[in-house]
């Protein structure tokens, strides 16, 4: 990469010399709005959360009057309290199980659909591509609302179908079914976007790379496994990382389904627990500690994964 300032100097005149003087500051002025916003809405909140996670309120006397409640250092006590909270570990396990269902199913379907579209052996390609991508335009709240109604036994069309065979269908908004019900909403909402990402990568493969294999008698399936998938692997890695991040912060779906299902508690996912601690219990210190734990865990998982696969998708230029 050649920078503007590193170009030949023959054309330099005193006038451009002063321009060059101004140029030294130019990149910073272009970056200024982004940096100010980044510091205000990324760096400062992270720093503030870390600070709060180490503080607590000390109540002196009866806790009445000004000055009776003061903030003091708390050491690691907030972390100890939030990690040993009986609601915390179940929510972590739940999100783990949810991730194990959602991420492979969603990406598997996205890859399958993208390969089918790319093979071009069908007349319904454009229609299907548009239809499968459509849920991306539907907010998670609205998607959850639609599926939430479809899950109600009185509304669900599956109830009618299954009852024709004399079987009583399960209420998917109860018991262990709920996890699958929420996972289905995420798969429905996310498959299309990932499919488009993978499909775009597939379309960028030069045709001659697999035409030769085809002439040699390779089947579509072999071409997909041996040629196409290895080439689009960087795309798969990125969709995996972004899906993982999205999974760990699931919030809108269970919050929306909550009024329809008694099984979804207010600490169903770790993020819901943070919300409850901060706004229902007014314990911002414990909420901050849990936030820090989730942020560190997410970052460690995604960053660790990128390191593990020796990723070159990010940073490809430097």
């Amino acid at each position: 990469m050649t920078a503007v300032t590193a170009l030949p100097t023959e054309t330099r005149t005193p006038r451009t010399a002063t321009r060059r003087g101004r140029r030294a500051g130019a990149p910073y002025s272009f970056l200024a709005p982004a940096l100010i916003l980044f510091v205000a809405f990324f760096a400062a909140p992270i720093g503030y959360a870390a600070y709060l996670s180490l503080r607590r309120v000390k109540v002196s006397g009866l806790g009445l009057g000004a000055g009776a409640r003061t903030e003091v250092w708390a050491g690691m006590s907030n972390y100890a309290r939030s990690l040993t909270d009986p609601d915390f570990l179940p929510s972590v396990y739940r999100i783990g199980a949810y991730g194990l269902i959602v991420v492979p199913t969603m990406l598997g379907l996205a890859l399958l659909m993208a390969l089918l579209l790319d093979a071009g052996r069908t007349r319904v390609g454009t229609f299907s591509r548009t239809a499968i991508f459509l849920p991306y335009a539907v907010p998670a709240v609205v998607g959850s609302l639609l599926w939430g109604f479809l899950y109600l036994p009185r509304v669900s069309p599956f109830t009618d179908v299954v009852q024709m065979f004399g079987v009583e269908p399960p209420d998917v908004l109860t018991g262990s079914w709920v996890l699958w019900a929420v996972a289905n909403i995420a798969v429905w909402g996310g498959t299309g976007f990932n499919m488009i990402v993978i499909y775009t990568a597939l379309r960028a493969i030069p045709t001659d790379l697999f035409e030769a294999a085809r002439l040699d008698g390779a089947s579509d399936k072999q071409i997909a496994w041996r040629i196409k998938i290895p080439i689009v692997l960087p795309s798969l890695i990125m969709t995996f990382v972004f899906s993982l991040i999205a999974t760990l912060q699931v919030f809108a779906e269970p919050m929306t389904l909550k009024p329809l299902s008694n099984t979804i508690s207010s600490t169903w996912t770790p993020l819901m627990k943070v919300y409850r601690d901060a706004f229902v219990r007014n314990d911002i210190y414990s909420a901050a500690a849990t936030s820090v734990v989730i942020a560190v865990a997410t970052f460690a998982v995604s960053f660790g994964f990128l390191k593990l696969v020796g990723n070159r998708a990010f940073n490809q230029e430097d």
Partner: peptide, 23 residues
């Protein structure tokens, strides 16, 4: 600057929401 921004891509946005609210 670039590395900090890349790290920002990996930070789940909603983790920030509560500290953003408090600030």
């Amino acid at each position: 600057v670039f590395n900090v921004i890349l790290a920002g891509v990996l930070v789940p946005g909603v983790i920030l929401a509560i500290p953003q609210y408090l600030l």
